[in-house]
Design a protein around this nucleic acid. Structure first.
Lengths: 225, 225
DNA sequence: TGTGTGAATATTGCCGACAGATGAGCCTAC
DNA sequence: GTAGGCTCATCTGTCGGCAATATTCACACA
């Protein structure tokens, strides 16, 4: 136990984490960055060769991406990048809204007692908005919601919420649909206040706020579809 | 396209389905039947040897069981059967209730127009209850709820709902916690009626009904914990 | 020119084997 | 008698290869 298991970002050589986890990370980043286009085929062995690893961990990573609905796989035919669009947003956000409604109800007492975590995220979001730092805006927006879900203290709820891949899909919304994030900071501040004051309508407020993301996505995509 | 892709149950030799899928099935059945006890270790190669397959498809099957929260995996240490109990029910059912609340709202118009699928399940459930056929009761109870979620016509919602492993966990509730299912048939009939009549309170009704499962589980476990 | 057929190629799914990590048991030193 | 370290067995994570399957392409034929 002498050596330090800290992983200083050493992107040159893959670090000491489970290999499939690193591969998953690389693949997600590739999808977000547009390295692979929607509909494009993802060949297991090609990725494996490229990353200097074997086929097995790549397969496992791909399975995880499948549960995030980032790719689609057909038995014996392989994986393709899912062609996502407004339709996906329209399906994801109602689910998120429902989950966060439950979360708000469960988390209300805890957050009324100590809303500091939310307040921290609100501040960070405001700062990022002021700086115009989009990726930080995404990060703290998502983290705000995750904090609410976490405060519900229900591991199934958290797990289910995470399985929606909120981070990834939010980033995709912004990148591919040019969704606007501004004005979200104000919402978050208002919701935090409602939590602090024990407002019983906070659940509905949060739920509506989430559904507003869809509106924003639809609006920014203006008439398409 | 001349030959029929029907797969007549040929249990003698593993059929023409993805191998990992069959393995998953076997493992789930083993868990449900108590073949493996909670906390017991699951050794990949042992399963592989037993089923006369290699380690790889077993690993993939185990990953899926992990997302269903039936097992727990620690890196480099392997998988154990999760020790589930009332606590798990208490976490799962609120999530289910939230999802089905959303489902009910989305599905209401469709189900008001054509509630026949629900009615079919209600009848089957009543028949199974009359016969005292427990596994059929489970099947049709779950199928009723699945039908509602399906009618919402939201693939993310359906996918998320399925990921809760409702079938498995219901069976576990009954088997391990001696949960009672009777009186559920009446609930289902009432909910179906509400859908048919376009009752706007149907969502809340369904949600409450789901949460009642927890009550039933808690009650049947009487005082434990 | 359009269409069915078959070989050639590309890719998945699976296998058996090996390297590294983990935990148990024994052995030694104090 | 106990703490610490060493050895060994077990198991996971990964690898490279092979067979089965899907897809592509060329070609013959109508």
């Amino acid at each position: 136990m002498v050596d330090l298991p800290q992983l200083p970002d050493d992107p040159s050589k893959l670090a000491r984490e489970p290999l499939r986890e690193q591969i998953r990370q690389v693949l997600v980043e590739g999808l977000l960055s547009g390295r692979w286009q929607p509909g494009e085929r993802i060949v297991e062995r090609r990725i494996a060769t490229e990353l200097k690893v074997s086929q097995a961990p790549v397969r496992e990573a791909l399975r995880e991406l499948e549960t995030l609905r980032l790719i689609e796989t057909v038995p014996n035919k392989g994986a393709r990048v899912r062609a996502f669009g407004v339709q996906d947003m329209a399906e994801i956000y109602p689910v998120r809204a429902g989950l966060e409604l439950v979360a708000a109800q469960l988390a209300a007492p805890r957050l009324a007692a100590d809303p500091s975590a939310l307040e921290r995220e609100v501040e960070a979001l405001q700062a990022a908005t002021a700086r115009g730092d989009v990726s930080e805006q995404i990060r703290h927006s998502v983290e705000f919601h995750r904090e609410v879900v976490r405060a519900a203290d229900n591991s199934v709820l958290l797990h289910t919420w995470e399985s929606l891949g909120v981070e990834v899909w939010t980033a995709l919304s912004v990148r591919w649909l040019n969704m606007e994030l501004h004005a979200k900071a104000a919402d978050h501040a208002q919701i935090t206040r409602a939590f602090r004051e024990g407002d019983p309508a906070v659940g509905q407020m949060l739920s509506d706020h989430v559904l507003n993301y869809v509106e924003a996505a639809l609006k920014s995509h203006e008439g398409a579809r």
